[in-house]
């Protein structure tokens, strides 16, 4: 076992995949020569050459469209969209082509691409460098959406995504790249090297897409979270002393409804947490499913804690970010309800 940051884990996943399968190619803006702005692809061009790891122009629509064509003829492109906020020029290709080509061609052609993209705030990126667009992907039929919360999962899930026969949107919470950030922005984040989930096997392994993980066992209330919010929720549970069960979804589509339902049947209460804006966010979907499947077990309304319905502000970042205090308040509220 090695100790890895999430950046190293992601890199290792691509490395292992490229090693095993010649069809895997890695590209994106500043990805080849420079090694990626977050260094996720550092060394891959040196190791695999410029035909397998390369730079693209700043042309998101073209990049993704090209990847889809490559995939239709059997390649396995693993593309980096430098920040999730830059994916919009490619959104047309993602929704109309990537998500539909299997359906449209009656299974003749498929789209085994992975779009890796750093998401979320916490780095003073403001409105164009902090977004969490996962709900824009979950609303499209024909995409898988994965959001890891730690290095171990990141590697296993990314390899699984690359090997997956369908398009996977792989959202990497950038605030987690170097450590399990729990929303306490005024404290240094502990590095992954000091965290159990920073232990990552060097070789090949996969984590199945569609299986959630319970990060904290509890009996009072179920917290459904993913990405950065998993760590925020864990902090909120500790700080409020409320015996919360914290579920890390790991993938939003497919969704591990079983794990959620089992937990809520036990606790009778549910809080859904995400950093993306509230309205029409993925939390609404989870809340609807919970009331549909657990109605007779619920002892309180399902509560959502999310980013405010505003663009991500530059100043006031921590007023926007749903940190442990806000999640903690929600926990207290559902317990009192």
């Amino acid at each position: 076992m090695a100790r890895m940051t999430m950046i190293e884990a992601v890199r290792s996943a691509m490395d292992v995949s490229m090693e095993r399968d010649d069809n895997v190619v890695v590209f994106g803006e500043d990805v080849g020569y420079f090694g990626g702005v977050f260094r996720c692809t550092q060394g891959l061009q040196a190791k695999y050459g410029k035909t397998r790891c390369f730079d693209t122009p700043i042309s998101e629509s073209g990049i993704v469209g090209t990847a889809i064509g490559m995939a239709a003829y059997g390649l396995k492109p693993c593309v980096e969209i430098q920040f999730a906020d830059y994916m919009y020029p490619a959104y047309d290709q993602i929704t109309q082509e990537a998500a539909r080509i299997r359906y449209r061609s009656n299974g003749d052609f498929t789209c085994p691409i992975v779009l890796r993209m750093p998401t979320g705030g916490g780095i003073f990126g403001g409105q164009t460098h902090s977004q969490s667009p996962e709900a824009l992907f979950t609303h499209v039929c024909g995409l898988k959406v994965v959001v890891p919360s730690n290095p171990y999962d990141a590697k296993g899930l990314l390899i699984a995504s690359i090997e997956d026969p369908d398009p996977v949107m792989f959202l990497e919470p950038k605030r987690l790249y170097n450590g399990p950030f729990d929303g306490h922005h005024d404290r240094p984040v502990i590095p992954w090297s000091k965290h159990d989930l920073g232990e990552v096997p060097e070789g090949h392994y996969t984590i199945p897409i569609g299986k959630a993980e319970v990060r904290r066992r509890g009996s009072a209330v179920t917290v459904v979270a993913y990405g950065t919010m998993v760590h925020v929720a864990l902090a909120a549970a500790e700080e409020t002393g409320i015996d919360a069960e914290v579920i890390d979804l790991r993938s939003l589509l497919p969704l591990d409804l079983d794990t959620i339902v089992k937990s809520v049947e036990k606790t009778g209460r549910c809080v859904v947490v995400h950093e993306a804006t509230l309205t029409s966010g993925f939390g609404g979907e989870v809340a609807a499913l919970v009331q549909e499947h657990c109605f007779y077990h619920l002892e309180a309304p399902v509560v959502r804690v999310a980013g405010w319905d505003t663009p991500y502000p530059h100043a006031q970042e921590w007023d926007y970010f749903p940190g442990p205090a806000r999640v903690g308040r929600a926990l207290v509220e559902v317990m009192e309800a």
Binding site: F124, G126, Q127, T128, P311, P313, H314, A315, Q316
Partner: peptide, 19 residues
């Protein structure tokens, strides 16, 4: 003041360097 995210900034501190 926009760069430092203050209310006297051209975008009231909400935009930052790029906006």
């Amino acid at each position: 003041a926009e760069l430092t995210g203050r209310r006297g900034g051209l975008s009231k501190g909400k935009g930052g360097s790029m906006h």
